[in-house]
């Protein structure tokens, strides 16, 4: 039996097992009773649930503030945990802004890599990679190390070692959901490329030159992918917001697209980077007081008429498909004593 026939037969057996599993699923008596009693349920909220919720918030704050050294470690962990939120990208995917890539693994040096899917909007390109390790020995992590991405006729989108100043379009990037391990051999990673202005991309060539195993062993090789972008992904548009006036704001620009809400701020006053680094000091919320996860924060230097300003770039996990985002509020603590409140209304 060849590999494909074997695979199909195994999948058919799995089909049978899965149908059987759900056929035999038992519903707990409490669920049956919950349905039976639903119309008798009190309409006022269960106080116990709210006490539990506030207890969780209290505990998490206590962990953050207790002890100097330990708190800092926990804080850094919390910060990176929150930046791994993918609600915006999930919303985009659920609204069809995903291109599934049907391809086999490309192998070199017993490492297989393939592109699983990509999500693209005006400012972000999210590429999901799957890695397969066929080397002997246990691998705890695998990720791409050195690579370049070109688009449409060899234009550079991302160049890992931009020492020759090839005018890379991607100014900064953040990893979204980090490296995930399915089993000892298969890993998956989604990398978000953030740009000032994403050009119209009809084709991508990704060239990976080395991978890192176990966070220390570098394996050189060549893994290349040539991907044609589906037409629906080429035409993108962004939404913007009108922002209320504030004396400390020199300039502010907003971009809401399919996967992210990006805010670029130039202040005309001093600010404390360490304070801004704390997500609790840069809260974006809607009218219902729902707070959105901050995916990233960066500072870049802007030269304006010979004067250097530090621009604050905030990205939040909001999609243009998210609910209730016509009006948003940004609360910024820029120093110990200075707080800025901005109301943003969608144009």
């Amino acid at each position: 039996m060849d590999k494909e026939q074997n695979l199909n037969q195994n999948l058919n057996q799995l089909d049978k097992q899965l149908f059987e599993l759900y056929k035999n699923k038992k519903v707990p008596p409490s669920t049956h009773n919950a349905i039976k009693q639903a119309f008798n349920k009190e309409s006022k909220k269960d106080i116990r649930k709210y006490i539990y919720r506030f207890a969780i918030y209290f505990i998490s704050i206590l962990i953050i503030t207790t002890g100097v050294v330990f708190a800092k470690d926990i804080y850094n962990f919390i910060s990176s945990f929150f930046t791994n939120s993918t609600d915006g990208i999930d919303e985009a995917i659920n609204h069809g802004y995903v291109q599934n890539i049907d391809m086999d693994f490309v192998y070199d040096k017993d490492i297989g890599i393939k592109v699983d899917y990509l999500v693209m909007d005006e400012k972000n390109l999210d590429i999901s990679y799957v890695y397969e390790n066929n080397k002997e020995g246990k691998i705890s992590s695998i990720s791409i190390n050195n690579y370049n991405i070109r688009y449409n006729n060899n234009n550079i989108l991302y160049y890992e070692n931009d020492t020759n100043n090839f005018n890379t379009i991607v100014k900064n990037y953040t990893r979204t959901n980090g490296l995930k391990k399915y089993n000892d051999n298969i890993f998956c990673e989604s990398i978000l490329y953030s740009v000032d202005e994403l050009p119209n991309i009809s084709n991508l060539i990704i060239e990976i030159n080395s991978v890192t195993l176990n966070e220390k062993d570098v394996i050189e090789g060549t893994w290349m992918f040539n991907i044609n972008i589906e037409k629906e992904n080429i035409e993108k548009d962004i939404d913007t917001y009108i922002v209320s006036y504030n004396e400390y704001i020199k300039n502010i620009t907003t971009y809401l697209n399919e996967t992210t809400f990006k805010i670029e701020i130039l202040l005309n006053t001093d600010f404390d980077e360490d304070i801004l680094f704390n997500p609790d000091n840069t809260i974006l919320s809607n009218k219902d007081k729902k707070e959105f996860i901050r995916n990233s924060m960066n500072f870049i230097n802007i030269n304006e008429n010979g004067e250097i300003f530090k621009q604050i770039i905030l990205e939040y996990d909001v999609s243009k498909f998210s609910d209730n985002i016509d009006e948003l509020k940004l609360n910024l603590r820029i120093t110990k004593d200075k707080v800025i409140d901005l109301i943003m209304k969608k144009t």
Partner: peptide, 22 residues
């Protein structure tokens, strides 16, 4: 789920393959 039909089909098949691998 408001997902394209072909996307659903691809994702279900992919999920099954992953399950089989696991």
């Amino acid at each position: 789920l408001n997902i394209n039909y072909n996307t659903v089909k691809t994702k279900v098949l992919r999920a099954k393959e992953k399950l089989k691998d696991i």
